[in-house]
């Protein structure tokens, strides 16, 4: 039977918890199977043997970006609905893993989330209102987040085996390089703005400016060293500060 509208809504809502039982053996598979259940129960209504076989199939290891996993949920459910063979479903499932992870990681973790965070920091510096900055971040980020989940859920069901086209040339492909450029501008300014905001008054503007210019050059040239030094400093700070304070 074809899943109803309410089955689809239930499945979509479960996609928000797709990483709820993430583990080192099956990765995101528990969440994937859990999100597919409302659809599978309808597809295999009255046939508990085939339902069980389908759930077991989708409990095999799987991974992908959580916001694009809805595409796997519905595309795999579509294959189950269309009566594809278990072997073909398994092959398709394996083929989906890498692109779902790579496309989602680049779009969300490396581009969209940094953009929204940096925008928020800039807004805070300009207006000094923390809740406005936080609100802008949450609103902007989640507009993109929920759109992406909904888009991937819809495309998975309508395209089925054809989702590879969407992953190969996603609708945001031309926008990402522009946001990446904007991110670099925002990162450069955020480092300066945040350091300025936290800088002690005793240094003066030019002291801060010179220190930051040197820090930014060193840190950018040797990112691993810069991060390790800063982490070491902040972790040693409690001891140092108690000693200096005394």
């Amino acid at each position: 039977m074809k899943p109803t509208r309410s089955d689809q809504v239930a499945s979509f809502l479960r996609c928000f918890a797709v990483q709820g039982s993430w583990n080192y053996r099956s990765l995101v598979a528990g969440g994937l199977a859990n999100a597919m259940l409302p659809l599978l129960r309808r597809i295999y209504a009255g046939d508990p043997v085939r339902l069980r076989a389908a759930v077991e199939r989708h409990l095999e290891p799987f991974n992908g970006h959580p916001y694009l996993c809805p595409m796997a949920v519905t595309a795999l459910a579509r294959l189950e609905h269309d009566g594809e063979s278990p072997e073909r479903i398994d092959r398709f499932r394996s083929a989906l893993r890498a692109p779902l992870g790579a496309v989602g990681d680049e779009l969300v973790w490396a581009t969209w989330r940094p953009f929204c965070l940096l925008l928020s920091i800039t807004i805070f510096w300009l207006w000094g209102r923390p809740w406005v900055a936080v609100g802008v971040f949450l609103l902007a980020y989640n507009l993109g987040h929920i759109w992406l989940r909904a888009w991937s859920f819809r495309r998975g069901w309508t395209e089925g085996l054809g989702v590879g086209k969407d992953l190969g040339d996603p609708p945001w492909a031309r926008v990402v390089p522009w946001i990446t450029s904007l991110n670099l501008l925002l990162i450069g300014s955020a480092v300066v703005l945040v350091s300025w905001l936290v800088a002690p008054d005793t240094l003066g503007r030019w002291g801060v400016a010179l220190a930051l210019a040197a820090a930014a050059l060193l840190g950018y040239a040797r990112p691993a060293l810069g991060e390790r030094l800063a982490a070491g400093l902040v972790l040693a700070a409690p001891v140092l500060l108690v000693l200096l304070g005394a």
Binding site: G188, V191, V198, A214, A215, A216, L218, G219, A224, A230
Partner: peptide, 29 residues
């Protein structure tokens, strides 16, 4: 050191794929 760490963190966090990337970063600063 904090500034260096910040820059280090962001340097590692962004993908440096294009020749113009460092220039954009410096321009923002």
């Amino acid at each position: 050191l904090v500034g260096m760490g910040l820059a280090g963190g962001v340097g590692a966090g962004v993908m440096r794929r294009r020749a113009t990337d460092p220039l954009l970063l410096l321009a923002g600063g």
